[in-house]
Design a protein around this nucleic acid. Structure first.
Length: 215
DNA sequence: CAGAAGATCATCT
DNA sequence: GATGATCTTCTGT
């Protein structure tokens, strides 16, 4: 199933109250929303097709063992970005959720490109060490680190307000529940807690496919 | 201060 | 399916 195209001119950011909710609710509802980034080079936008929730009870959350300099944004106000560096070369982008003081964040794992595809492709190619062939459309922003590269998101966006340009989340299509696959990433009992769940638009080729065996 | 692990990706077999 | 790249962050001593 392919996400509907939403004219960028009609995009309106979601309200801050959208983010000030339990992380699982936000992660679920971000599916179908539109991630937008305006820069000097132009606008890129994509429909969110894959998210992952990191809540207070998740041992895999950066915030599980309390605040540190890195994870501080997770404890701060909802509706802002938490951007961190990992594996020596990648940046990952999260939306901070829940109340101030309650650490929660949604990792944006993949989007279906809507606008600025040439710019995304240029950014993805510019990072290559050796000349590479053009990145396939479906691979432009499939994966959290590919996404940040395609969107030009980096450390300068840590704590950015996601309810207004230049980097914001716009209201988008509401996918019905049976079109969204929800997978617990930890134990089976995770369903009742604010633990790690991954939400994916079922059948979207712009998200990690069901073939992804690791989990 | 040293060591290990990491919310990943591209490339190779 | 396996592996190297590359370096920050955190933990323990």
């Amino acid at each position: 199933m392919s996400a509907a195209r939403i004219p960028a001119t009609t995009l309106r950011p979601v309200a801050r109250s959208f983010f000030a909710r339990p992380v699982l609710d936000v992660a679920r509802d971000l599916i179908g929303c539109v991630l937008v980034h305006d820069s000097a080079d132009g606008r890129v936008a994509g429909s969110i097709v894959e998210t992952e929730a990191y809540g207070v009870d998740d041992p895999g959350s950066h915030a599980f063992r309390g605040p540190t300099p890195r994870n501080a944004p997770m404890f701060e106000a909802p509706g802002r970005a938490y951007v961190y560096f990992t594996y020596g070369m990648h940046w990952c982008f999260n939306a901070v959720t829940d109340r101030t003081g309650v650490p929660g964040a949604v990792l944006i794992r993949a989007v279906e490109p809507i606008e600025g595809i040439d710019l995304m492709r240029a950014r993805r190619l510019s990072g290559a060490k050796s000349p590479r062939r053009g990145v396939r459309l479906r691979d432009l922003a499939r994966g959290p680190a590919r996404l940040t590269q395609a969107f030009g998101i980096g450390p300068e966006h840590n704590r950015t307000d996601l309810t207004r340009p230049p980097l914001f989340i716009g209201m988008g299509e509401r996918f019905p529940d049976d079109a969204v696959r929800a997978t617990p990433r930890i134990g089976l009992g995770a369903a009742q807690d604010g633990r790690r769940w991954r939400f994916v638009v079922s059948g979207s080729s712009y998200a990690s496919g069901p073939s992804s065996r690791s989990g």
